[in-house]
Amino acid sequence: MQRTSDQVSDAKRWGAGALVFAALAVVGGMSNAYVISLLTIVLLFTFMGQSWNLMLGIGGQLSIGHALFIGIGAYAVAILNIKYGVTPWIGLLLGAVIAGFVGAVLAWLSFRFEVRGIYFALLTIAAAEFARIMFGGWDYVGGMQGLFYQAPGGTMDLGMLRGDARFYYFVALALAAIGIAGTELISRSYWGYVWRAMRDDDEAARALGVRTFRHKVLVVSISAATAAIGGGVLGLVQGAIFPDSIMGMAISVDVLIGPVVGGLGTAFGPLVGSMAAIPLHHAMGALGDSLGLPGLNSVAYGAVLILVVWFLPDGIWPAIVRLYGAIQLPARGRISQLRKVEE
């Protein structure tokens, strides 16, 4: 009984997801350049937010230094492509492998020496800041001046991942879809169950045979690797990378806004949250500029964040699901009433 009802809601969920992405594809075909480039950033932050969400929302490990992994990905793609003409596909792969390794080492060392929770989060910031300063002083990768991609020639080239704004929109859309579907699949796999168990109660999970140490290292490593893929594409989209922006504190914060606002640990949360937060940030920035109030975007942004966290502590997406459930329940009640009448 229960299992059938699970399957029905499963099919519904995947169907709803497919519908949302079909709609986003249509939007990508119709919208103007400004909307396209804004939504590309939204979708990339959805993907990177999803990677962060996997680590905290499912694995229970907080990172405030995701810029480290995003930066590694961005540099791997840029160095190989700009200096050696290698396709970004290889750069993305290599960046993911390096970031996954760095994440695993960081997690292994810190959990081995009982650096956990907020102290682990502080360590991620320290590592990201260390990398930012190191890349800033490293002439081979352009130092503080960064690295610049050649302007795309206008023709779309999937093999070299080059194209116009609309091309990158669809790349970002594909990534976001993969991120959401991947999170959904992982959270319903063996990994998802044991990760959520160790997130909720580490000691109780261990008593049930969960080898939490290796699973924590694994979740950090996977999160790092996927964040690096997002960072690699972000660098391509922006056309240039600078250590202060791609590895700065600001990007570590930007990455976690989507999932926190949208709903921690959920598959759709990072998309909903990024959709709400990033355009707002831009709109307030534009409004602030026109009014001559340059700080307005940050103030408004902060205010909205506080409101969301205050009124919807689980995030926007769980609130939508609850609302939908509340609308659905009476309807279901009616149907079963009807059945009774028929009988």
Binding site: A197, D201, A205
Partner: peptide, 8 residues
């Protein structure tokens, strides 16, 4: 002292 995984 029971320890359920509270979000599961």
């Amino acid at each position: 002292i029971v320890r359920p995984m509270k979000d599961m």
